[in-house]
Nucleic acid binder design. Structure first.
Lengths: 203, 203
DNA sequence: CGGCGTTTTGAGAGAGCTCAACATCGGTGG
DNA sequence: CCACCGATGTTGAGCTCTCTCAAAACGCCG
């Protein structure tokens, strides 16, 4: 589940980061473990969850490549949920001490991190808003309208259609059908890796 | 749409904030306007949106009482979307210069703000994950499991059932029916303003 | 050429949405 | 004190849309 594109942690800190591999099912950290820092998912998927009063697992988040998890660990002595590899995975730990020290040393690094959080927040709110749209076509149009290139018409797909379906919270079949319908209706044109919005006929 | 509970901006900055009223339909800011700072919604609802290539409005977020909007404006010279009052509303502007100055002066203020963003991010991811659950009961159980008081059983409702339905992304009718079903099934007990999870019978 | 995952298309069922009607509860004003 | 009113809470019934399960065509890579 890709949430944001750009991750730009200070090179100094990146130099201090440590990569690690996990087997499917392996535990990255558990609730109440001492918070070492935040993780970037390099490959695979990590599931963040908590266990409820009856011992059932409640999923908080499924993170995929490019995602950052446990940012809040920077400000807490321990983790607040469990993190378990959903698939074989590769993660990169950014030690909190190094990060916080860097923020202290370099104000711009701190600002940049804050800005990153703020931007991610914005993107996430937008995505949540999108989920309020019931129909597949509305969700797709919402997504397309907000992800065009500079021309305002072209949308470059970053993964497969299945990936897009997952991002939109739709079954891939529903998305395929919707794409077909919209193409037949002349609303979009499809090419390999891109979707182009057609000029809407005025009323 | 309530996203988080606690908003704790430094008192020094709060002292510098300015409250303002808006009529329904009034513009708070427009895209590319100079970014004055971030806003806290005191009352009413503000809609953040962008206009797509065909002139249609694409909703990014609907913010309600207690919500913060335009955090990213702190790190950008201008706003990136339109903000328009959906209802008569009251907002509080936290001037970015004051905020940033405060962050510079007091490291803990900056950390606290960062922590707030991180926590909100976490909560939002969880909410998005919840939306991946299709059935009304699954969404409700997810929400209940994650919002119990210390006893792990009691959930205090902060608004009306309709509000909860909106937060869960369900029609209020669907939620009422689900509550009924779960109560009949002995999974929950309802009292005025609270829902109590019943001890789950073991297998 | 032989898999494997993606892309398509088909058909059926279920769940929630919508519209509608009614009950309930405060609050307001006569 | 009571009547009225608006918003919340509640229940009913049909409809639409997506999900799910299935199966087949396609494309890529070893």
């Amino acid at each position: 589940m890709k949430t944001s594109d750009a991750l730009q942690l200070p090179p100094r800190v990146r130099a201090l980061s440590v990569e690690r591999s996990l087997r499917r099912g392996e535990v990255l950290f558990r609730r109440d473990d001492a918070a070492l820092g935040l993780y970037e998912i390099v490959g695979g998927h990590i599931r963040l969850s908590r266990v409820d009063a009856d011992g059932r697992e409640v999923i908080l988040h499924s993170a995929g490549p490019g995602d950052l998890v446990a940012e809040a660990s920077l400000f807490s002595p321990n983790y607040h949920c469990d993190a378990i590899a959903l698939t074989d995975a590769r993660v990169r730990l950014y030690p909190k001490r190094a990060l916080l020290a860097d923020f202290r040393r370099d104000r711009r690094a701190a600002d940049a991190f804050m800005a990153m959080l703020a931007r991610e927040l914005m993107a996430l709110r937008t995505r949540l808003e999108q989920r309020n749209l019931r129909s597949a076509s509305a969700r797709l149009e919402h997504h397309l309208a907000l992800n065009t290139e500079a021309d305002g018409r072209t949308v470059i797909l970053r993964g497969t259609i299945k990936d897009l379906a997952a991002e939109l919270g739709l079954s891939h079949e529903a998305l395929y059908r919707t794409l077909n319908k919209m193409e037949s209706a002349g609303k979009i044109a499809r090419a390999k890796g891109t979707i182009t919005l057609e000029k809407r006929t005025l009323l």
